[in-house]
Write a protein that binds this DNA or RNA. Structure first.
Length: 469
RNA sequence: GGCGAGAUGGCCAAGCGGUAAGGCAGGGGUCUGCAAAACCCUUAUCCCCGGUUCGAGUCCGGGUCUCGCCUCCA
């Protein structure tokens, strides 16, 4: 047996995983803010969460996976300054925040489905949990962890000495207001908003004990994870950018309320780089799943590409790299699918057992997907016969690359009858030329067909026509 | 200024104390009238300098260089 090891940001080491309740795992994934299309950088993060969930299930756990949808505008800056993201989108698209949120939520779910990301067992929308958030804010105020200013309710960080445990930041080292305007009413520069009082023109606002307002960004995760997973659950995931502010704040809020750190394992996915540098919405060098499809790639090529590096490493996105992934995936599927048509091989089962073990060992080693994929490649080359297809089917419960059913290189062989008449005519002419051993004419016709978008392969007896992609 | 990650063959990338996975690309070969496909073979002492050890990409110290976070963003 291979125990499951996961890296915990909290302790900065790999730990053997075991859930609070035997056999069951509760995990919470920080979901998207739905005010524009998700980038492939965002998607890498959700592929990571999906892999974690699938590996847990592969290990026999029943997983409750909760993901939030941030459909309320929180402020642009985590330091509670600046514009409201949702309002920016409202100005841009001339729609209501609700319409925008719905539109981009659907777009996100569609992209996720294209990447074979399983739907979370529970999706929760921030706007549907304002009540729970307010209750938590009230609780924090009553317990003395928060104070009121002219523009909102703030968490009092001085009451939570453990602050900074995730990121290793010591508050006294941080330069107050180094890059943002300091709010003079805040008692400590790292105090953060639990609730904001809304100016009249603010579109999304709700009644509260402090008048009309809207929630601070961090409170939604605390309130919703508590509601669906309890005061303490097993795993919390997100991007590395969430470590210093968002998750620190979340821990501070939740633990102040419940007395417990909300999650035992904190796991973070590294960023996707583009051409060696950061991808960011503000730099405008972002791509979406749709962009990949437009360039002729299948979405799962991106999923496969994500497996080329460990989730805690930077992964550098370039078009040639994606092409390499697409080729690798296609060729893997070709091997798998071809194997299912051949005869059984003696001794295959024995070898398969070994590969199963290696695969499990790899994914259970903190989700080492590059290793896991290499195990599959080794299996593909091990002459397992139809056993390979069975094995790939098992591994695909984690990989989800449509190995057995997805498009492979060989799938494009066309019947003569499905070709346009003029193409059929040229092929027939070429067949006759070949019979007459008129190679010059044969080659000329093959070139002509190629220009029309068809590749002709000559076999022992006959030929195969495929469409050039 | 603070925090963190990383430097492995042409490219991407595993390995985390015992003598370098895998993919893509390249080269050679088999097959073929020629192609294509397929199959086989093939390409590295791991940024630099010290140290620990019988033994180090793998641990420690010091450099150099990248990159990320501390603003939006996974």
């Amino acid at each position: 047996m291979h125990p499951l090891y996961l890296y915990n940001t909290l302790t900065r080491k790999k730990e053997e995983f075991s859930p609070i309740v035997p056999g069951k795992v509760g995990m919470y994934t920080c979901g998207p803010t739905v005010y524009q299309y998700a980038t492939i950088g965002n998607m890498r993060s959700y592929v990571f969460a999906d892999i974690l969930r699938r590996v847990l299930e592969y290990n026999g756990y029943s997983v409750k996976m909760v993901m939030n949808i941030t459909d309320v505008g929180h402020l642009v800056s985590d330091a509670d300054e600046g514009e409201d993201k949702m309002l920016v989108a409202v100005g841009r698209e001339k729609k209501t925040p609700w319409e925008i949120a719905r539109f981009y939520t659907e777009a996100f779910m569609k992209d996720a489905a294209l990447l074979n990301i399983l739907r979370p067992t529970a999706l929760c929308y921030a706007t549907e949990h304002i009540e729970e958030m307010l209750q938590m804010v009230v609780e924090l105020v009553e317990k003395g962890y928060a104070y009121e200013t002219s523009d909102g309710i703030y968490f009092d960080i001085s009451k939570f000495p453990a602050y900074g445990q995730l990121s290793g930041i010591r508050l006294q080292d941080q330069l107050a207001g180094a890059r943002v305007e300091e709010n003079p009413e805040k008692q400590h520069h790292a105090d953060f908003a639990l609730w904001k009082k809304a100016p009249k023109e603010h579109i999304m606002q709700w009644p509260s004990p402090w008048g009309m307002g809207y929630p601070g960004w961090h409170i939604e995760c605390s309130a919703m994870s508590r509601k669906y997973l309890g005061d303490q659950f097993d795993i919390h995931t997100g991007g590395v950018d969430h470590i210093p502010i968002h998750h620190e704040n979340e821990i501070a809020q939740s633990e102040s309320c419940t007395g417990k750190i909300p999650a035992r394992f904190w796991m973070h996915g590294e960023f996707l780089l583009v051409d060696g540098g950061k991808m960011s919405k503000s730099l405008g060098n972002t791509y979406t799943v749709h962009d990949l499809v437009t360039k002729g790639f299948e979405p799962l090529a991106f999923r496969y590409f994500c497996f080329s590096a460990h989730y805690r490493s930077h992964l550098n996105f370039t078009w040639p790299a994606l092409e390499s992934a697409q080729k690798g995936l296609r060729s893997l599927r070709t091997m798998v699918q071809r194997s299912s048509r051949g005869p059984e091989k003696p001794g295959a089962e024995e070898k398969m057992g070994r590969f199963r073990e290696l695969f499990l060992e790899s994914v259970n080693d903190d989700l080492n997907m590059p290793k896991a994929v290499s195990v599959l490649w080794e299996a593909a080359k091990a002459d397992l016969g139809p056993g390979l297809a069975r094995l790939a089917g098992e591994f695909d419960r984690v990989l989800a690359l449509d190995l057995v059913k997805g498009p492979a290189d060989e799938d494009k062989v066309l019947e003569l009858s499905e070709l346009p008449p003029e193409v059929q005519a040229l092929i027939e002419e070429r067949r006759l030329a070949r019979e007459a051993k008129d190679w010059a004419k044969s080659d000329r016709l093959r070139e002509q067909l190629r220009e029309m978008g068809y590749q002709v392969k000559d076999l022992k007896d006959g030929y195969e026509v495929t469409r050039i992609p």
